[in-house]
Design a protein around this nucleic acid. Structure first.
Length: 284
DNA sequence: TTGCATGTTCCGGA
DNA sequence: GTCCGGAACATGCA
């Protein structure tokens, strides 16, 4: 077998899906953080691997935080911001990060990189690949600096705003959706899911999106985000594209057509050739 | 042993 | 200026 499907087939049977954090996952991390780590005194910070620290040393982190209390964390796109006194801890989870709560003193997982200890348990930042990491900045200025090039959170983008954000861009619509400087929170998986629901080919240039396409895009984005946030992740079910994309013989949940796969920018793109025909359509 | 992985950033070239 | 592809980052897996 040659062509775009070759690498796909080589992967063999469907492996267990790896959870790469996108907006809904980070939202669930925020909820874990808010439920356990807010307004309680931080008793200690244990940096098990300083390789995840960005612009801060292990020493400074573990000298600054103990005795302080986090206030309510907020999420912006795939970033999690946790104010603490005059500072803020900013977390990004890259492709393999997560955040979870354990009882006090449990054996660390080997990918636990930083542990925030509290009287009744521990908040743990786990990340296998260390592609991103954790910062300590002055708040709010340092937060603004880190998020300076990040667009509005995808859950807060209205249809009109979406039109403005994509207006006049020649960029492919999938590249635009996953461009965090245009709009924050949508990753490869969500973008494919949204475009599939909106019946828009991922390579469609934004300038070719008509009023109808934009309306469908907005509706699909809202629906996919709401349902994913509710589920705490992008649902991997048979009625979602996400549930089929890892299967080389996967078919469109809507029409049964064999799904198409390709790679752009080093990322896999999955779409239905029937529901998402190549470049449309009416000019705007 | 090799190539791939759902994120981000940087660089060169069109 | 805009856009794209490729590489890099670090690690595990098939």
């Amino acid at each position: 077998m040659t062509g775009p499907l070759a690498w796909f087939a080589r992967r063999g049977p469907v492996g267990k899906p790896r959870i790469v954090p996108e907006l809904p996952d980070v939202e669930s991390f925020r909820q874990v953080f808010a439920a356990h780590a807010v307004k309680r005194p931080i008793s200690g910070v244990d940096v098990l691997d300083a390789g995840v620290l960005r612009d801060v040393t292990a020493d400074r982190l573990s000298r600054t935080l103990p005795g302080q209390r986090f206030s309510e964390p907020r999420r912006h796109g795939k970033w999690l911001i946790a104010p603490v006194g005059s500072h803020a801890v900013i977390l990004h989870f890259g492709m393999t990060g997560s955040l979870y709560w354990t009882g006090p003193g449990e054996q660390p997982h080997r990918h636990d990189r930083v542990i925030f200890a509290f009287p009744d348990g521990e908040l743990r930042y786990r990340d296998m690949r260390k592609l991103q990491g954790l910062r300590l900045v002055d708040s709010p200025r340092g937060v603004d600096d880190v998020l300076a090039d990040v667009g509005p959170d995808a859950t807060e983008v209205s249809r009109e705003r979406l039109r403005e954000l994509l207006d006049g861009r020649r960029k492919q619509v999938k590249a635009a959706l996953t461009d965090q400087s245009i709009m924050a929170g949508i990753g490869n998986l969500l973008a494919d899911e949204i475009l599939w629901r909106a019946r828009i080919h991922p390579r469609t240039s934004c300038v070719h999106l008509g009023r109808d396409e934009l309306a469908r895009l907005d509706a699909a984005m809202g629906r996919v985000l709401r349902q994913s946030i509710k589920a705490g992740r992008v649902p991997v079910t048979k009625s979602w594209l996400t549930g089929r994309r890892d299967d080389p013989s996967g078919s469109c949940p809507r029409c049964g057509t064999l799904l198409a796969h390709d790679r752009t920018g080093g990322r896999t793109t999955t779409w239905c050739p029937h529901c998402q025909p190549d470049e449309p359509v009416q000019p705007r």
